Simulated scan of single mutants.
Amino acid sequence: MANPTFAANPEATRPSQAFRVPPSSSTLSIDAHLDYRTGQYVILWLDVQRIFEDVHYVKQGSSVVSLMSDQNFRELQPPRIPYRPGVVFDVVLRDPVHESLPEKQIDPSFVDTKVLQGLETGNDTSADRVLNDLQSTLRHLPECLTSIRDLLQVLAEDMHALSDQFCDTTAAKPRVEPMDFPEIRDLVFQNLDRKDFVTCARLNKAWRSWTASMIWESVDICGTRRLNPSVSALQHNGHLVKSFEMYT
């Protein structure tokens, strides 16, 4: 179908759709709006609701006019119905007896035609059957929700137990380093001199404790003060000193 040709200002010359409430033959017109994305005129459902406060749905002849939807069958926003030139839409108002039914427009693909006819003619046997089924379902809904809640609780407890088991089996174990073994340390220390021990002592507390006895085993004091250990260091490590020599 070829796209319609619009004036420079299509909103200024937009058409209108005629509506009536049967059995009355008098009509009211509602201005259409141009959907610039599709190039089609549409009637906003909100405009219909402003004019017909109790509108339930509209139809053309015996066919219900559905709200427009996208390719994924989601209703377009804001809700709208297609504009159909030269057609008078019949407005079906809500019946107070069935006001518990959804206020949105009824889609004929989801509602039995006999139900619609019952709502329009007052022969509401089919509609009552649907309402009774709905009420029966709603009565059992709390029980279903309770069962679902209990099931979720059981699943949550099972997941918690599995999580605890997984954490127990994957808990990090203390890491053992080769230098934690005295035999290996002795083999390494055999190849180090006092200067190496001093360097190792600066790495961390563990190395400082391992090398302290080798560093302070023998202490030499000379005439150059800056080369001698401090008094506080001697006091702290004096118990490790085995030989003490002084040079001038």
Rank of each mutant, 00 (worst) to 15 (best):
Leu119Asp: 09
Pro102Glu: 05
Ala127Phe: 15
Ser126Ile: 11
Asn132Glu: 13
Ser100Trp: 10
Gly122Lys: 11
Phe110Glu: 15
Pro102Arg: 14
Leu119Met: 13
Asp107Ile: 01
Val97Cys: 12
Pro102Lys: 11
Ile106Ser: 01
Ser109Tyr: 03
Leu101Gly: 10
Ser126Asn: 06
Asp112Gln: 15
Leu93Phe: 07
Leu101Phe: 11
Leu119His: 08
Glu103Phe: 06
Arg94Tyr: 11
Val111Asp: 00
Gln105Glu: 03
Ala127Gly: 12
Gln105Lys: 04
Pro108Val: 06
Gln117Leu: 04
Arg94Ile: 06
Ser109Phe: 02
Asn123Ser: 09
Ile106Met: 03
Asp124Ile: 02
Leu93Gly: 08
Glu99Thr: 12
Glu103Thr: 07
Asp112Trp: 07
Pro102Ser: 13
Asp95Ser: 09
Ser100Thr: 10
Asn123Arg: 15
Leu119Lys: 07
Arg94Asp: 14
Val92Cys: 02
Asp95Val: 07
Leu93Cys: 09
Glu99Pro: 13
Asp124Trp: 01
Pro108Thr: 08
Asp124Phe: 01
Val115His: 01
Ala127His: 06
Glu99Gly: 15
Thr121Gln: 11
Val111Met: 01
Thr113Gln: 04
Gly118Ala: 14
Pro108Ala: 12
Ser126Gln: 09
Leu93Trp: 07
Asn132Phe: 11
Thr125Met: 06
Leu101Glu: 14
Asp107Ser: 04
Pro108Asp: 08
Ser126Glu: 05
Ser109Leu: 03
Thr113His: 02
Ser109Gln: 04
Lys104Gly: 10
Lys114Leu: 03
Val91Leu: 03
Asn123Thr: 14
Gly118Asn: 13
